[in-house]
Design a protein around this nucleic acid. Structure first.
Lengths: 338, 338
DNA sequence: ATTAGCACTCGGACCCCACGAGTGCCAGAC
DNA sequence: GTCTGGCACTCGTGGGGTCCGAGTGCTAAT
């Protein structure tokens, strides 16, 4: 059956093009990849692959390069490959002595960018719902206050609130105390109810609701779901065939966190443990020549946050996927324990 | 005296080259810049400027471009120019509704990158010494704890500490209470003494010193002095004459925060309100073709933190300096009030 | 179904040359 | 002494033409 060989040819083309970044011809394939057939046969297969839209030739007298669809077929028929041992060790030593959540995320993103030699992206984890441990009000100026919420799972959220009026010190202290009494030990849902009651108490100060809203928001953990990235220099590395005018839009898209977030979010709706978007599949003008490999991570069962790697369409998919998978797995474990 | 005119010629060359990114010739200068002299005279001046090492020609039959020394002379003889009004308004609207310190820094760095159309860099502010308002211990796992220090000036620092043993709940609560008693209301210096006494109390638990160290460190505000940047896409913008292989090293240098920190630090040791490093003056291989404009900011009198803009040597120095100065000033005021 | 052979295509490298921007210098004017 | 007009010279850029060879598609043979 030539079906299998055609797939082998496609694989060989992808691998060849990825490693050399030059179109690969039928002769080169016949020589190096010991497929057991002659170049003429390969040419026939190539003609079919081209008809199917999986490969293309930049110009008549050149070899073939994979199309987006070609890469797609390649990754779809890829068996999960394991990460190399030295890399595994790197993950361990790199992440094991992180001091807090920020640090974990920061280290992860750097690590991932080094392993993949691509741009790495890590979304801050959304920890699961947990009870409020303490609420702290700190006065700023005369009519504003900082609200700090410490949750039982060691998260600290803060935000500032404008009070509208200038409460006396005594009133301020009293409200802070009452607020704690109404909040401590509660998870978001009951917390919201409890504070609702607290705010509507007869004689309650008018700035209570502003503060209560801030506490609820902080407890939901949800301020903004930030994304950090690292390894942008890999975009300009020799071997990535980006022109300098192609790099600009990519960097813009990265800084435009909204775009990334939307994209990552779309990608995990799909159920698999790891998702790949190739070229135009990103449906983003600036990223038309890039691919993204993303995986979810988080406590077992609910992988609620995302991380991934972004690089040229012509990337090492197996290696990148292995690295992303490995880091996601490790990070899940870390988040679990925190 | 031709001295003045030579300087005018240099200025004109810098301005011309900055705006067109093409070497400027004597004829073009005579025509456009109405210096009142003919191209021949300008040629003579150019010959002298070239001897002085302020300008150079890429090849024999091309115009002149400024050397690093030329730019240096240009900025040294620059009168401080004011920022355009619309930009001033932009600063105000952009920064006025930031919610917390993180947000302020984040917004500042974006703003600065937009104003200058360069890569903007902002170092996190080091707030002045202030008293500890509250210390919170939150248990993580069995033998680790999160230490949260809230200071009177609305800063929140956190770090995790390994305890070495697994204290009982009751012991844990007691230590937390005592720790607060020994800490609240103190500024770093007396705090250190107080905690020293506390740790050496007879019968004190052995993990007290680890926690105390963390509190002192947090109170000093000093964890890590992070640097954030934005606008990296400006490096690849059309008009910056960076090749894509020049961009890589620059991005690397940016991610390598150490390099930036050292550089920024060097720059403010010099006393002026604003410092400029041009090309090779950065003494950093990767940044040989870039310039940095930096200013300190912080509470009046002590501008302890830094921000700046980084771009190609061929940058708009007056505009960039005005923007950096303006943002630094505004940020100082914000930090002052927080 | 595979292979050997062959004519054909076309992009890239190379060379050559003309063009013109820009220079340096000199002799003359103010 | 300073500036200017003029002129010969330099050299990088870009257009046009040619050659080369990698790689192809097709056909006939196995």
């Amino acid at each position: 059956m030539s079906e299998d060989r055609r797939r082998a040819v496609l694989h060989a083309i992808v691998e060849g093009y990825v490693s050399t970044s030059e179109p690969v011809g039928s002769k080169a394939l016949a020589d190096s990849h010991r497929l057991g057939v002659s170049s003429a046969t390969i040419r026939n297969d190539m003609a079919i692959l081209e008809e199917e839209g999986l490969i293309a030739q930049p110009h008549t007298s050149a070899g073939r390069i994979p199309t987006d669809a070609g890469y797609r077929s390649f990754v779809d028929h890829l068996a999960a490959s394991a990460l190399q041992d030295p890399h595994k060790r790197a993950i361990h030593t790199f992440l094991s002595d992180a001091v807090d959540l920020n640090d974990v995320v920061e280290r992860s993103v750097r690590l991932l960018s080094q392993l993949t030699r691509q741009v790495a992206v890590v979304q801050y984890p959304s920890l699961r719902e947990s009870a409020v441990r303490r609420v702290e009000l700190v006065r700023i100026g005369t009519d504003r206050t900082l609200v700090v919420v410490v949750s039982a799972d060691a998260r600290v959220e803060q935000s500032t609130v404008a009070l509208g009026i200038e409460p006396g010190d005594e009133e301020f202290e009293r409200v802070a105390r009452e607020l704690n009494e109404a909040s401590v030990g509660l998870t978001p849902a009951p917390l919201a109810q409890s504070l609702e009651r607290w705010v509507t108490r007869p004689g309650q100060v008018i700035w209570a609701s502003a503060v209560a809203d801030a506490v609820v928001a902080a407890a939901k953990g949800g301020t903004v779901r930030r994304v950090v990235f690292a390894g942008t220099s890999n975009l300009a590395r020799a071997g990535t065939d980006f022109e300098s005018d192609a790099i600009g839009p990519i960097l813009e898209a990265l800084e435009e966190q909204v775009v990334l977030l939307r994209l990552l979010h779309e990608m995990t709706g799909e159920g698999q443990d790891i998702a790949v978007r190739i070229g135009a599949e990103t449906r983003t003008e600036a990223l038309a020549r890039t691919s993204i490999v993303a995986a979810g991570y988080g406590p077992v069962g609910e992988s609620t946050s995302l991380l991934g790697a972004l690089g040229p369409t012509r990337m090492d998919y197996p290696g990148t996927m292995a690295a992303v998978r490995a880091v996601a797995r490790y990070l899940s474990r870390v988040v679990e324990n925190e």
